[in-house]
Amino acid sequence: MNNLKKIMIAFVLSCTLLEGEEYTFGDGFQLGDSPVIIGGYLSSVYGIEKDSRVFDIDDLALLAYGEFDQYDFLAEFEATDLYRKEFGAHADESSNSTFHIERLYGDYYFGENEQLRVGKFNSDVGFWNQMPINVLRDTTSSPNLVKDFFPKLTTGIHYESRQSERAIRRLSLTLQHNADIDREYNNFTVDRHYAFACDVGEKETLWRFGGGYFRYLPAHEALYALGAFRMEKKGWDFLFESIVRRDTDDDKLSYDVYAQGVWHWRAEHDAILRTEVEKAPLTRFHDTTVVAGYTYRPLSNVALKGEYEAHQESRLNRWLFSLSLLF
């Protein structure tokens, strides 16, 4: 696997250096006259907690993607915590240059409304999990819902059908019955994940429902169900997601619910407020979080963010500031 990753990363870099004829900041290199694009993204984060300060070059990722008639593909290789420096009570310094396979998939389109995806991809669960890149998200931090309750990434097959004239606008099915392409790069080490999702409503006011089963190491199984709502109005966005989970070796339900509002008060400026309540799986840890943030986008592919995260337990409170960009 390590050799495979090195070969694929070397191929991407070679294409960028030798074949790229045109570069647009934020849109990457186009390889000659082909529809293949090479690009990437970078994010850095500065955090202030009770007893420490942390600077982290959080993500560096290389992307390759393209569309060919009825086919398209995406390859993404990411290194996290590329450089990390902590000051204060827990002073430390570390680096990590290991790239992992975050996404690697191909799509086949049966027509305008049907699609089959094979490979490693973001699990089709809710709305937030479809926004994995910092620069595209509203805040630097993510709700605990997308970190603690289901596999963020799936290696397998995903089928999607869209019908604009029906009550159910979109239906998707996911099947994983194998190990992850890169087992070290996921929030759970899974070898089974079966899930479904469906959308009801319009683009501006959309409901999304779903559920699934997954098996994760060493020998645990879990079921989950999710309901989500997204509303987009002029000057405002509202997002709500709620999930319940039951592990087969635990007879008690765990849950998470969050609601977020975004005010686009000026063309490049957003104000964000999010509140979340969680009872974490297995640990039974209860937490209530309120996040107040501000995002400035001088360019569509560049984001400067600041936020304060208040927790039920004050020792967890923190400030986060980040700079992220697509290149």
Results as ranks from 00 to 15, higher is better:
F68V: 00
Q115A: 10
D33W: 06
D81T: 10
D199V: 05
Y65A: 08
V45I: 13
E307N: 08
F188E: 05
M8Y: 13
S164W: 03
G201T: 04
V12Y: 03
S34Q: 05
V190D: 08
S95T: 15
F110M: 08
T98D: 12
M131W: 05
F214K: 09
E278W: 02
A292I: 13
A267R: 11
T275K: 01
N144S: 12
E309L: 15
L273Y: 10
N2A: 12
R192S: 14
A91D: 13
R192K: 14
K305L: 11
E241V: 03
P298M: 07
I37P: 06
R297T: 13
L82C: 07
L217M: 14
D237C: 06
S141W: 11
K279M: 01
I133Q: 01
T288R: 09
T205N: 14
E19N: 10
D237H: 13
V290Y: 02
I157E: 00
N96P: 12
H311G: 01
D59R: 12
G111W: 12
K147P: 03
L136Y: 10
V12H: 08
T275G: 10
D256V: 03
A195F: 00
A10C: 05
F25W: 12
T16G: 13
G40V: 06
F240R: 04
D256S: 15
A292H: 02
P143W: 10
L31K: 06
H220N: 15
T248E: 06
Y194E: 14
H286K: 12
D250F: 00
F327V: 08
K6M: 14
L282D: 15
R274N: 10
L42P: 07
T154F: 08
Y258I: 11
E313N: 11
D256I: 02
S141I: 01
D191E: 09
G201R: 07
E86I: 04
V200A: 04
I101M: 08
N144C: 02
A75H: 02
I133M: 03
H220C: 09
D237L: 15
S254W: 05
S164M: 06
E232I: 15
D59V: 10
L323F: 15
L136P: 00
E112N: 14
Y109M: 02
A228V: 03
A197T: 09
Y71S: 03
A292Y: 05
S14T: 15
A167M: 11
G293F: 10
E202C: 05
C15W: 07
N96M: 03
A10M: 07
R166S: 14
Y71L: 04
T140C: 04
I57D: 02
W265E: 09
Q30I: 05
V125A: 05
S43A: 06
S44I: 02
R245A: 08
K305V: 13
H177K: 12
F11P: 00
M8W: 14
V146R: 10
G293A: 10
F209E: 00
L326N: 08
